[in-house]
Design a protein around this nucleic acid. Structure first.
Lengths: 349, 349
DNA sequence: ACAGATCGTGAGAGCGCTCTCACGCCAACG
DNA sequence: CGTTGGCGTGAGAGCGCTCTCACGATCTGT
């Protein structure tokens, strides 16, 4: 009964509702938009008419005059390695979606699959389809944040943009997390601690490397370039990096990998090389993804509040959108060490 | 130089372009929309003006008159277990996104986080924000497909809708895949083959169970309810199911799990119970997700063409949207057995 | 040479909504 | 009693675009 006659809503206009309710379009509009300056009686009539006709406002018409779309764009370029096997994006999207839903905003997902597609995405965002944009997972000197900002589109970036500041962003405490991981390894009695870093053109890579170095320094251990190997966040990359480290420093007894996937790759290589984990070598990963719990042995890892990151990005964006010209802001979320078997054992502390 | 003066595009209207180009609005509109009935000279002038002003059409205004939005909605309700640790959604989204991008459509992602939010989503879709909707991963008798169809919104479902037919859908060959998995186990010499099924209210669950049964029948093996345990696609659920099976049938020598995650859980339980994999028990999973390759031993699994599924869903949807009232169609995509160590060994064949 | 077809172009009518402004009403004020 | 001031309401002007229709110019056939 709620939904009714004329194919419910398709084609029912404000005007039709006004006629049925015996009021003017303006009054119906007020009721629909919750404007308080409407009489009791008129309001009742309008509500009944809306119900009866199954009226749903035409978003295009509304958007045309309000110049808002009540939706935001989420841009996720495709770093193929990261997307798979890592529930990072689903979780981030969930956080974003939750916060948006609570504010009655919609989410337009844009996945440029190659740099060539970026202009298309940029154009789309610039067209006013969305009230703002969330950019995630930028490589190198991505020009998009700046380009969008120049066009006056509110932007918030997920993860510290490598290209420098000048734009709002939300990030997890990569440095602190990595540092905590290393401290944990040192506490476990490890003294020859290697790291498998992420790509040098992503801040998640460089920041975790920085944290690793700070961790060593804090523990009074010396740096050694032979103990640092960069990879691409993938399992295969992690395995490859582990091989290099093992070749250069066979005496390695601790490994901090900047992602669980890479840690898993390292695990396989270590095992193949006859090293026992955690007896001979302790490993700590990053992300606390499902693979960490699944691996054998389960991986100690650094948990990052991904959903919260998504939510915070939305808050920042909408705040910024509502107050144009506000100064860029950054939010850093704390990480947390999750202990599992891969870092147990080891020598006495 | 490309982008220019007035803050590039924001606020530049068709009319402004027309004035600069010295033609009428209609002509500019024709050029923008690729209408061939435009003279060479006029076209050149218009293109130059567009370039100079950085004109981008206002999507709301366009949508208001064309009654199309050039975007489609993708509804992903949140079955928390499946979302994590399983790159299913990212891959599906990627397939969808690829196909949409090729046709210049946009993707609006809707993630109702609870059944209470579904009306909101339905309302949104019904408002004409999108030209059609893709629904994924339905549990039980989800009313949404029917409700949307009733409102005249083109719908395509991903995975056979449990509630029956009457709506277009794309699915992978779950029955065939499961059957192939069982056949593979039989070929490996296994004779006491259990299955860890998915939720009975999801077609991916029931269809794979059906395939398992067909596989046993085809191999001349008898069914045994004690060899069938349902779970929820999660690792923990898989572990739990494995324990039940082990308790009832300690002689089990083959396991077909309806997801890799559950297979991984089973693996841990088997190992904890002193069973060697694959020497004592062979395991085959489903999905061929990253965890399959990561597990120790790596899991034989059934690969499903997830990206292709996404693409096909889009094709079906747009076809349906362009030809209203067309009859619902279903598309079933083939699966493929991927052999890994978890099903090697075993007794002589 | 003229009728008719063809082609490029412009004028103008909306699409469905929001929002400003003005108006009529009635209570309260001096 | 006339005036001021809310308050609820309606009229109407757009928002920027598409698309139909009509019109003048050029082309074709006889």
């Amino acid at each position: 009964m709620a939904v009714s006659e004329a194919g419910n809503g398709r084609g029912v206009t404000l005007d039709a509702v006004a006629r049925v309710a015996g009021v003017s379009r303006a009054t119906v509009s007020r009721v629909v938009n919750g404007n308080p300056k409407v009489g009791e009686e008129a309001k009742r009539q309008v509500e009944r008419a809306i119900e009866r006709l199954g009226y749903i406002p035409n978003p295009a018409a509304r958007s045309l005059v309000t110049r808002r779309s009540d939706s935001i764009g989420v841009v996720i370029p495709e770093p193929p390695g990261m997307l798979f096997g890592d529930p990072f994006f689903p979780r981030l999207l969930r956080g974003i979606s939750t916060e948006l839903a609570a504010r009655n905003y919609q989410l337009v997902l844009l996945m440029p699959q190659s740099p060539e597609e970026e202009p298309r995405v940029e154009r789309y965002l610039a067209a006013g389809h969305v009230d703002g944009a969330l950019l995630v997972s930028l490589h190198g000197e991505d020009a998009m944040p700046a380009a969008l900002a120049a066009r006056g589109i509110p932007v918030v970036v997920g993860g510290r943009p490598p290209g420098g500041e000048g734009v709002s962003y939300v990030d997890v405490d990569n440095v602190g997390g990595a540092k905590a991981a290393v401290a944990h390894l040192i506490r476990a009695g490890r003294r020859t601690i290697a790291t498998i870093g992420g790509p040098p053109d992503m801040s998640a890579g460089t920041d975790r490397l920085e944290g690793y170095r700070q961790g060593l320094a804090a523990g009074g251990l010396a740096l050694d370039a032979a103990l640092e190997a960069a990879a691409d966040f993938t399992q295969e990359g992690g395995a490859e990096a582990m091989r290099r480290i093992l070749a250069a420093r066979p005496d390695v007894d601790g490994v901090f990998a900047a992602s669980d996937l890479m840690a898993a790759g390292a695990l396989q290589v270590l095992r193949a090389a006859g090293r026992r984990v955690p007896e001979d070598v302790s490993i700590v990963g990053f992300d606390d993804s499902s693979i960490a719990a699944t691996a054998e042995p389960p991986l100690t890892s650094i948990r990052q509040p991904i959903e919260e990151m998504g939510r915070e990005m939305v808050r920042l964006l909408l705040e910024q959108a509502s107050r144009p010209g506000s100064v860029p802001r950054k939010v850093i979320l704390a990480t947390q060490l999750v202990r599992r078997r891969s870092s147990e054992g080891g020598p006495k502390r």
